[in-house]
Nucleic acid binder design. Structure first.
Length: 790
RNA sequence: GCGGGCGUGGCGGAAUUGGCAGACGUGAUAGACUUAGGAUCUAUUGCCCCCGGCGUGCAGGUUCAAGUCCUGUCGCCCGCACCA
């Protein structure tokens, strides 16, 4: 009988669906395991072959855990708000809600066709009012704790999306989503104070099992640096404060640089003899987009402030002050002391503006020179000495700075969660009472974005005009919506108790399921979703809403699947592979197997249609295994060690996400079985169990066809005996001076002396040794004998 | 500039962490079975001047033994980037 994959897969998918086979149990006495993959954005393009790479990997982990006796939660849902849906809706004149519904249906069909063991009873959807009620609720908690605030500021404005972007969404000066130019625009925006959590987000990384590159990238993005703030008196009387990580170079500070937006300029305007030039420079800097400001970095620009100078606190020297946009208003104090001898940027600027320079550490010895009382100290000693000196005189202090900026949380678009705040003329910003949640997204006729930077909701005057919950007077609703990252910042909590009307999830459910035991997702989310959700979670922990300080105990990340030509898959490159086609032609089991066999899980891998055939051939051969099944129980002696080893290898490889080698070892085992011409029932069952997480349909079918007890998914994961992994006879090699000269079979527990003696008896070895002096003999148990001669 | 990573057959990739380099799979070659093969089976398949030798980007070093450790060097990928 031929392997009828389509029929088999349909059959088991129907059974799993009908019986809710993979629903997590609410029995909190069982050992739990919470496996999580990033829920997809249900785009109109449908499932990408990249999705199943992550989903299959954790499906394998989940299926193995169930066989190991865990109560497994492996949920799925939809991150469905977002611009692409909105833009599609605008273009095709369909309401985003309808587009979303359609896309979800099609995504769901695709996911089901791959046989993932998701608990569909816990499916969630971020656009569902019953869900976003709680997204809004969390926002209100943030607001009540002073972590959400509205501020007029220069923001990143995408000219094409007509919407502001978070810093994390601007990539190389262009919009992460559409690639259009991003300009600076002054707008009043809702902000989330993620900076309050900078230190906690950093510290928390020490307590979680995230792969190193994720930790490194988050640390980098948070960007903690320790230095000192130094107060410079000025000839204008005001104090100019700078931040420096090299306070030890203070003696070498030859000039100061302030960001063009620095507020002190306004106070100094009457003293500046070249105010026109200063104003002109400020205007010039303000007109530049972020992109220009960073891209045109080769040539430093600036202007000297005539009429005001700073005074170096260590020696009383007057030093000039410049304005230059290479100093950022958003970092540190917006002003620096420039030490051209120790900073390439300062040096470039000094060269152009002709400021003197001289080194303040001896490059050869690393010891301070030309630095008064610091001379002779190392850099580290000098940093401490100068900071102490400044602190004693109230001229400065040690200071920690972060690169992390607050999170711009407003979006001027329709398809997002309404922000549950009203603005009252009398009371200012007023949060909606929690009883009024969810604040529903109103039905609008036109959700086109506007060029003025107003949200489409602003046109809905009936909706916008409301009354103040505090004073009952006239008030207006906030018309901006939340960014797509809002719904995904807490979705893993909702899975614990997805239908709860009274809370994000019940306390018991959260206490039982959290933290997520294993979370796999894309590297592209490391400084976005992953960081944002850790922030929300830490906040919820601080207010007692969740029981763990970190949401995810373990985080791994998969590499991208590239097109056949090694380039990123994209419509324009014409190298996109549709998972539906693969499932139709080869079956879901082959597809799953191939995506795991494609290469190192963490690395990018090009798609190869040829290699899929290899996985299909393997399953075809597995299918024929039933033809040579005998009624014997247990493993035959000749295969016993191989089975124990394969159980060990597959078990540990799954834990280490080394799915490619796990599959390779199963292929090897199958080759070994076929070499014997038959398979015992005991061998057959173990083999099917080991393969089941990878290829669940064919294995369940073969299990049933062979009349094995119950369902495979209800059986127990095979165990191995370390002692039985060893074979009684091993082949070792005999090396002379490290070169292989002979091979021989020896008992595994042979002594070193016996092994060496045996090696010396080999004809080949004898001739090689003739007339030479044996200097040393080594035996590496089970591996080799090495004879060192001269 | 800072941070992370990588260089192994025609290709994707293995290598118990210092112990037979190239597992497993593709592809290729030859044969078998076939009306046929993009099916299946069998054999071969790192390279060469092939009873021997050479081989993990390159050059050194440590070691009985190096893809693995050390020093230097070249090249590639990813993230951040005027962050003081």
């Amino acid at each position: 009988m031929k392997y009828q994959f389509a029929e088999i897969e349909r059959k088991w998918q129907e059974i799993w669906e009908r019986e809710n086979t993979f629903a997590a149990k609410d029995d909190y006495s069982l050992p739990k395991y919470y496996a999580l993959v990033e829920f997809p954005y249900p785009s109109g393009q449908g499932l990408h072959v990249g999705h199943p790479r992550s989903y299959t990997a954790l499906d394998i982990v989940s299926r193995k855990r169930r066989l190991e006796g865990y109560n497994v939660l492996y949920p799925m849902g939809w991150d469905a708000f977002g611009l692409r849906t909105e833009n599609y809706a605008i273009k095709n004149h369909i309401h985003p809600e309808i587009v979303t519904k359609k896309n979800i249906e099609s995504f769901k069909r695709q996911l089901k066709s791959l046989g993932f063991s998701f608990d569909w009873t816990r499916e969630i959807n971020t656009t569902d009012p019953a869900y976003y009620k709680w997204t809004q609720w969390i926002f209100l908690q943030l607001y009540k704790h002073g972590l959400a605030y509205k501020k007029e500021m220069a923001v990143n404005w995408c000219t094409s999306c007509k919407c502001v972007l978070a810093n994390e969404e601007v990539v190389n000066g262009v919009c992460e989503r559409c690639g259009s130019e991003v300009v600076r625009k002054n707008k009043s925006q809702w902000m989330l104070k993620i900076t309050d959590y900078a230190q906690k987000l950093l510290d928390g990384l020490n307590d979680v099992d995230f792969i190193d590159r994720v930790k490194a990238q988050q640390r980098n993005w948070i960007g903690r640096s320790t230095g000192a703030e130094i107060l410079f008196a000025t000839t204008a009387g005001d104090v100019l404060t700078v931040f420096s990580t090299r306070a030890d170079t203070l003696f070498g500070a030859t000039y100061m640089v302030m960001a063009p937006e620095h507020p002190l300029i306004e106070r100094w305007k009457d003293r500046l003899t070249n105010l026109d030039a200063v104003r002109a420079y400020q205007d010039e800097a303000a007109r530049k987009s972020d992109f220009e400001r960073t891209e045109l970095s080769k040539e430093k620009t600036g202007v000297r402030l005539e009429g005001v100078a700073a005074i170096n606190p260590v020696n009383g020297q007057e030093i000039p002050i410049f304005l230059s946009d290479y100093v950022l208003i958003s970092y540190g104090t917006g002003a620096i002391m420039a030490v051209p001898a120790h900073d390439t940027r300062d040096w470039e600027f000094a060269k152009k503006f002709d400021v003197e320079q001289e080194p303040y550490t001896d490059c050869a010895t690393g010891v301070m020179v030309n630095s008064g009382f610091l001379d002779g100290m190392t850099v580290e000693q000098a940093k401490k000495a100068i900071t102490d000196w400044l602190t004693e005189r109230d001229l400065g202090a040690e200071k920690v700075n972060f690169k992390l900026r607050d999170w711009v949380f407003s979006r001027q678009r329709y398809w997002g969660e309404p922000i549950p705040i009203v603005h009252c003329e009398k009371c200012g910003y007023v949060p909606l009472p929690e009883s009024e949640l969810p604040l529903l997204l109103p039905q609008v006729d036109s959700y086109e974005p506007t060029d003025t930077g107003e949200s489409p909701l602003a046109k809905m005057t009936d909706w916008v005009q409301t009354t103040c919950p505090v004073c009952g007077g006239k008030a207006e609703r906030e018309t901006d919506t939340m960014p797509q990252w809002a719904g995904s910042s807490w979705y893993f909590l909702r899975y614990c108790d997805p239908h709860n009307d009274h809370a994000i999830a019940s306390e018991e459910a959260l206490r039982y399921w959290l933290p997520v035991d294993w979370y796999n997702g894309g590297m592209e989310h490391t400084t976005l979703h992953l960081l944002y959700s850790r922030f929300w979670h830490k906040f919820l922990y601080d207010v007692g809403a969740v029981p763990t300080p970190e949401p995810y105990a373990k985080r791994t990340s998969h590499g991208m699947i590239l097109g056949e030509n090694g380039e990123k898959m994209s419509k324009s490159r014409g190298n996109v592979v549709n998972p539906d086609d693969i499932v139709r032609e080869y079956g879901a089991d082959t597809m799953r197997l191939y995506e795991m066999f494609i290469g190192d899980f963490e690395k990018a891998a090009p798609w190869s249609p040829k290699s899929i055939r290899g996985c299909r051939r393997f399953l075809d051969r597995v299918w024929t295994l039933q033809d040579c099944l005998t009624d014997e129980a247990g493993y035959r002696p000749a295969l016993e060690a191989s089975f124990h080893r394969t159980v060990k290898k597959v078990s540990s490889d799954i834990e280490g996400l080394k799915m490619n080698t796990a599959i390779a070892s199963l292929m090897s085992l199958l080759n070994e079985i076929f070499a014997t011409g038959s398979v015992t029932r005991g061998e057959y069952m173990t083999f099917l169990q080991l393969l089941n997480p990878f290829a669940p349909h064919i294995t369940e079918e073969l299990w049933q066809l062979a009349g094995c007890p119950g369902m495979l998914n209800e059986s127990r994961w095979p165990t191995y005996d370390e002692a039985k992994c060893a074979v009684s006879t091993v082949e070792i090699v005999v090396q002379i001076n490290g070169k292989v000269r002979a091979r021989l079979s020896v008992p595994a527990e042979i002594s070193a002396d016996d092994a060496i003696a045996l090696a010396k008896e080999q004809e080949k070895v004898k001739t090689e040794l003739a007339g030479k002096t044996l200097l040393k003999s080594l035996y590496v148990p089970g591996k080799l004998v090495n004879l060192v001669v001269r």
